[in-house]
Simulated assay, not measured.
Amino acid sequence: MGSLRNYLLLLLLITALPSAAGERVDESMSLGSITHVTIENLRGEVTVIGNNGDTVSVSGELDDKAEGLTFEKSGSRIIIKVEIPNNSHNSWGADGSELTIEMPKHVRVSFKGVSSNINISHFTHGSEIQTVSGDISAKDLMQQIELATVSGNIESKNLSGKLRLSSVSGDIHDRNSTGRAHFKTVSGNLSSSSSANEISANSVSGDIELKLGKVDELIVSTVSGEFESQLSLNENGLVKMSSVSGDLTVDFTNDVQASFNLKTNAGGNIVNRLTSAKATRAKYGPSSKLSFDTGNASGSVRASTVSGRIEVK
């Protein structure tokens, strides 16, 4: 009877233990003439690093539920994919993959994940990163760059080229970007310290804060989010802003030379700290408008809101 009791206790202990850790991997292959590497990982943490070598390497630990790793050449690309059975996609308590992938920095990288965080750095020929609930950390990337997540946050630094950063409910924090930048959020907040000369930013309820350099074009739209920006408007430059109830504020760091046309439609307020010109109320209805010029008026500043506040200074 005692041996049976001991056997049952041992069986109970074994079934209570957590599942074994995922498989260890350490593989590499020569790049050859390949120019594009695609990576897929359902969950976990993936670090992708560009270097001056000529091989692609994968090391770390696979997802607990992984059947294995696909690491192969297919046509003009190398495919790296953590293979997860369809019935394991929502496995509660499973540990995701922890992988480090290194490759030549001139490779174009594509990444897809679900609840997978991605850290990517030092690539010169474009990066396309998509994840659902994971965070994205990106630095020192060039050319065509797309970073997209649904509920994750985006942290970026030293991006240059044509940039597209988007998150639905997560925040975007961008530093030291250059080139042309497009930012998009729904309820997440956006902050950027950028030298990009063409910028567009869209938000629904998230706040937008931009610290910019010399700008040729800035286009901003928000529904209820607040918008604040510092910038130097170049000759013949354009600033165009719109909101429903969100406030719009621009602080010009140069002696701005532009024509200004500012308008509210339903009781909003216009504050002009550049000249002595004052907004005028419509004879009928709650709208107001203000038009004035500074300097040679070569640039253009347009702003409209339904019920928000517009301030230029």
Rank of each mutant, 00 (worst) to 15 (best):
R273E: 14
K184D: 14
S245D: 07
V186Q: 03
K283L: 13
F252G: 00
A201F: 03
L212V: 03
V215S: 06
N272T: 05
Q143R: 13
A277P: 07
S137L: 11
L238I: 13
A277T: 11
G188D: 02
A279L: 08
S242G: 07
V250E: 01
E217I: 07
S137T: 10
N269E: 15
N202D: 13
N189Y: 02
D255C: 04
Q257G: 09
G179D: 06
D216V: 00
M142D: 11
G206L: 00
R273M: 08
V271L: 10
N261D: 14
D171P: 08
N272D: 08
G237I: 00
F227C: 04
A201G: 08
Q143V: 05
H182I: 10
G179P: 03
E146V: 13
Q143I: 02
F252P: 00
S160K: 11
L274I: 11
A138S: 07
S232A: 14
L248P: 03
R273P: 05
S243R: 00
S169I: 05
S221C: 06
D247F: 11
Q257V: 04
N197H: 15
R175Y: 13
D255K: 15
K157W: 04
I199G: 03
G237M: 04
G188H: 02
S177W: 00
F260W: 13
S187L: 03
E209L: 12
N236L: 10
T149M: 02
L231D: 04
G170V: 11
L210H: 03
A277C: 06
V215W: 05
S194C: 05
L231F: 09
A138T: 06
T222P: 04
R281C: 09
S156K: 01
A148H: 13
N158T: 12
A266P: 07
G152E: 00
K139I: 09
A266T: 06
S167W: 10
V150Y: 12
R164V: 01
E209Q: 12
V244S: 07
D171M: 05
D140A: 09
L163P: 01
R175K: 15
I154V: 06
D140S: 14
S245P: 06
T149N: 03
S166L: 09
F183L: 09
K184Y: 12
K214I: 06
I199A: 01
V239L: 03
S232Y: 03
S193A: 14
T280M: 14
G213L: 01
L190G: 07
E155Y: 12
V186I: 06
E209V: 09
D247M: 08
S187V: 02
S224G: 11
G188Q: 05
I219C: 09
T264S: 08
I145L: 07
N272G: 08
S177E: 00
K184V: 11
N153M: 08
E217G: 12
K214F: 09
I270L: 03
S195P: 05
K278T: 14
D251Q: 15
K263R: 15
E198I: 00
S200M: 01
T178H: 13
L159V: 06
I154F: 04
L190N: 09
R180Q: 14
V271M: 11
T275G: 02
I219P: 10
D247W: 11
S232D: 05
L165T: 11
G225D: 02
Q144V: 00
L210P: 02
A201Y: 00
E155P: 04
